[in-house]
Nucleic acid binder design. Sequence first.
RNA 1: GGGCCGUUAGUCUAGCUGGCUAGGACGUCGCCCUCACGCGGCGAAGAUCACCGGUUCAAAUCCGGUACGGCCCA
Length: 827
Amino acid sequence: MQPLPKEYNFAEIERRWQQKWEEMGIFRYDWNDTNRVSFSIDTPPPYPSGELHMGNVLNWTYFDMVARYKRLRGFNVLFPQGWDCHGLGIEIQVEKANNIRKRDLPPDQFRGMCMALVEKYIAMMKEGILKLGCSIDWTTEYKTMDPDYWRRTQLSFILLHQKGYMYQGTHPVNWCPHDETAIADAEVDYVKRDGILNYIRFPLEGTDEHLLIATSRPEFIPACVAVEVNPSDERFNKYIGKKIVVPLVNRTVTIIPEESVDPEFGTGVVQICTYGDKEDVKTVMKHKLPVIMLLSENGRINENGGKYHGLTVNQARAAIVQDLTEAGLLDHTEKIQHEVGVCDRCKAHVEILERKQWFMKTRDLTEAVEKNANEVVWYPDYMKNRLIDWARSLDWDWVISRQRLFATPIPVWYCKSCGELILAKPEWVPIDPKLERPKIDRCPKCGGSEFTGETDVFDTWMDSSITCAVHAGWPDRADWKRLFPADVHPSGTDIIRTWAYYLMVRHLALFDETAYKSVLINGMVLGQDGRKMSKSLKNYVAAPEALNKYGSDAIRQWAAGGGATGSDIPYRVQDVEYGRRFLVKLWNVSGFCSKLLADYTPVEADSVELQPLDRWLLSKTEKVTQKVTDAFEKCQFNIAVEEIRNFTWHVFCDAYVEAAKDRLYRPEVHGQNKRAAAQYTLYAVLYRVLQMLSPVVPHLTEEIYQTMYAPDKGYPSLQQAPWPVFNEALVDEPTEKHGDLIVEFIGEVRREKAENRMSLNTPIKTLKVYAGDHSAAEALEDGKADIAGTLKAETVEILPEEGSGRPVAQFPTVHFVAEYQVAAKTS
RNA sequence: GGGCCGUUAGUCUAGCUGGCUAGGACGUCGCCCUCACGCGGCGAAGAUCACCGGUUCAAAUCCGGUACGGCCCA
């Protein structure tokens, strides 16, 4: 066997194996292999946002451990990689970086600038993912901004349109007045803001009385369509059905009953405007109230605002408050804190507008989503509630159209003469209706020949919510169902309500089948201080820097072992450093083994005389194999990594190797047979350690494997060696008990040496052991060679009887008396 | 206001389908230049497992409540 070099250069080793694996092509999904069962990972294509961050590191380490583990278990694994390019985020960055507004440029030029930025970001993220050593099948790489991907998004739309899931409608939508586009519920964040509650007098028609209503949005008075009170509110229910005058605009509206009005809030009388907030939308729908749209798409008051036409919302608010004050209608004001919806990209206050939009009938699928969410396996299980709660909470269908530029076009046209909708045929896509005509000459309805292409585009989630099918090869491969539904969809806690949800509704609608069979959840990465990691909190750690400093194998141990799957984990340098030290330990013990195994030829277990400690270690090895396998099966990476590390460091290195050293070094004393038995054990157990560690620490284990084991084992890569199967026959409880006694006994004698400030290799002249009974005596007698060797005892005398002396902590019936040479000399 | 999750030594974290002296890491303290490793070894100290009540022969683990914290949503 080749000895390992003394120094361990992780940067060189990691780079080298990353290259070699790619050259070997061993991480590619094999479409020609029909023997192995397929296993597909629905890698979520990331939104390219710049350099890789520690959250990405956590995610990709999870994906990669699953991919590697499953391959070792004999699966034909698909681990694809794509990039989710489109979106408002990139548009905003391009606008900021170039100090432009997108509508001031030709659309193609703006799109080009977006693509250039995305390409730059992809390169940065890809570098990080490569450095992490992910076993991705790079032949699958795709970008959602490529026309070939448009084709899939557009085709999925066409099919869903044909199935009746897509419709156009004028409905209230969340609207970002800054970006001038509709946005989905999932894109609205809620933040606490200071506001002012205005108490305004609304005169009751035909009387001198008035009611005081409280509102934080007085600028919506011109769009007031009703006033509502709680029907059980004794103060006001007598006014229900009466007419009340909207101040300044002098319209009358009806006072209506509404249970959801909180009598405690404000005055208990509220105005309904179209639309001040989502509650207004619900009320308008429920009571079938008229709608007065007050805002235009850029957030300014429109012609329905009368004298306030053209003002911004804030200007209008000031003007209206001023006018109310002058008219003596503003009773008083009060400062409040309230939650307002803001655009998750630009943080502008989200308004609610009615505009013609495309929708997907997602609410029809809520029951199916819930049913499938319950059937899917979730790691950890309780995370399924997030998806179910979200699906149930949705008030509106999904708005899939956006008024943006950098996105997949919606493949429809409208006949200029009759307005007929022309839906693209599946064979027309990819197509951009803004640039191309439909591939028909005449409108099928009126015969007109002029068409207007749809200018709206798809929500980015329309691209990324079909990945389970796309990764499987849909729509181009006839055999795509081999890989569909995805075996595992990995997702962060923050995107369950978007990614996991949209995937489920789209695939259910398209194929009447669940998108994925299991969901693997990762938590968020926190800073060292336990708060969410962010640049503004100064607790941010750049992933490329960390990877360069500590190496992928160390960082991956942090990702795997930092906490339970699904829980948020802090980035802790101490954990990474522990990982580094573990690697050094593994490297050193491997080097030690390679030296002592230089003359070793692998043999079968029955050709060596295994000693008690050998059998003890082999039995423990089987048990840890079972635990680690079980942990990987349940995606409990933290348990897996802790089990292997503790076993390797403390059981294998500290206990076994230390006790077996004398046998290995001095065959002339103990005999060649006992040395061979120790060699056999070292060889077998180190290999097992490398195997079990390889999904977490792929580079170093590969390096050690290649030097020490490849010539004998024959697998081109450790990543292709079959996962060890738990062998119950090797578990031997009595032997483990005996071994534990030997190890504990050695420990106790060492403790005595330590307490007396003696070096551990202080020679013992005679060691007298009172085992307490025959069974213990036999066990110790069996391990006598290792005991004597490890403790540097010249003679060891083991007696079955009880006796006095120092008791062994874990085995208090065993006592010993040690006579030291040093003590004899100094006395 | 609703939902979910959490509260374990100075710090982080495991265990929570109930059962030995609650495991690990970091940090702290003491000792040891033992021929793989001082990025090491051998040891030590440090936790009434948030609080109250219940179920049980037995609870960190199950049930109910309280307090505090986090995330998501309204």
